[in-house]
């Protein structure tokens, strides 16, 4: 059986192999406590060891877990929305050229998503056009907010317009521990990740719905990572808010739960009950395989896990593992 993974990260080798003492878009590489980091000012971006793998080494890993295709997204350390727009644009171009090269050299194993300098919307639109039209990338990965602006902000209307026109899939993924649930690192609980990622994703769904983005751009393709977070489960309370609060309706949104089947989701739930709930809420044609390679919060055996789920039919498993993404991305 085929399998295509929408949630698999990578970093350009130029960054992960940055020689000591040299700079890459203002970053230097530094080892701290046995880990490699890209450092710029106050920023500390952890380079996962897997980002040092060559394409062939990555493919060997993919073979070992029966994944045919990685739809590559750069690691979120490449967002850098806080840096000046020209720096972000330079990083994005280099990331996108790197990913595009992998998709050209291994077209049967890799497809790619763009990195965009969202702090400069015009530059982001230009780079998305280049990435899709010239490099053949399938869309882009962006964060749930850009310097604390959510994506319903009017500044982003040209971006959504371009994404719709290009047929680009926009994959929402938080930037590291920058979620609404602040890190509790002193205690090591990681709830900024376990609860925060899922919280940010439902806020994104809410802002796209109530902010009118999904109405204004009906052909837009949006995918919410981590199973859309708490979106499906929380839809009932969103509906109630829409029913009783005028501020939820002021931009003309319809009942929120009617938008659940207008976006896509990966299957990264770590729970069969949750995945089943999602399928029943949004429809089986809306869910993609997503593993979060190479992180420890990913699915260890992504295809093995999906295939093991007793509450899913064989057709449902195939839809998640490859059919849906093949249809939506044309890969």
């Amino acid at each position: 059986m085929r399998s295509i993974d929408i949630h698999a990260h990578i970093a350009p080798l130029a960054a992960s192999h940055l020689p000591e003492g040299q700079t890459w878009h203002g970053f230097t590489r530094r080892e701290m406590n046995g880990r490699q980091f890209l450092v710029q000012g106050e920023k500390r971006q952890w380079l996962h060891p897997a980002y040092s793998l060559t394409a062939d080494e990555r493919i060997a890993y993919m073979d070992s877990v029966n994944v045919d295709v990685h739809v590559l997204t750069t690691w979120v350390g490449m967002y850098n929305y806080d840096l000046p727009g020209d720096v972000g644009a330079g990083i994005a171009r280099e990331c996108n050229d790197y990913v595009a090269e992998l998709t050209r050299s291994h077209p049967d194993r890799f497809a790619g998503m763009a990195t965009l300098p969202m702090q400069d919307v015009n530059a982001a639109v230009a780079e998305l056009e280049r990435a899709v039209n010239e490099l053949g990338l399938k869309g882009a990965q962006i964060a749930d907010h850009v310097n604390n602006k959510t994506l319903d902000h009017e500044d982003f209307i040209p971006f959504w317009s371009a994404a719709e026109q290009l047929g680009a899939l926009i994959f929402f993924h938080q930037e590291g521990d920058d979620t609404i649930v602040k890190p509790r690192d002193t205690k090591g609980w990681a709830i900024d990740n376990s609860i925060g990622n899922l919280s940010d994703r439902v806020v994104t769904f809410g802002t796209l719905v109530f902010g009118g983005v999904l109405d204004r751009f009906p052909d837009l393709k949006v995918c919410l990572a981590h199973g859309g977070g708490f979106t499906c489960f929380g839809a009932g309370r969103l509906d109630r808010g829409w029913q009783v609060r005028s501020e939820a309706r002021e931009l003309g949104a319809n009942i929120p739960s009617t938008y659940l089947n207008k976006v896509y989701y990966d299957c990264l739930t770590h729970s069969e009950a949750v995945l089943r709930y999602m399928i029943d809420s949004v429809g089986i044609d809306r869910i993609f395989l997503g593993s979060d390679y190479p992180y420890d919060m990913g699915i260890d055996e992504p295809t093995g896990w999906v295939n093991s789920l007793e509450s899913l039919t064989q057709d449902e498993k195939e839809a998640i593992l490859w059919k849906n993404l093949e249809r939506v991305l044309g890969v």
Partner: peptide, 11 residues
């Protein structure tokens, strides 16, 4: 993150 659309309550 946002105070809009009653999201501080509904989410």
């Amino acid at each position: 993150r946002t105070r809009k659309y009653h999201l501080p309550n509904t989410i």
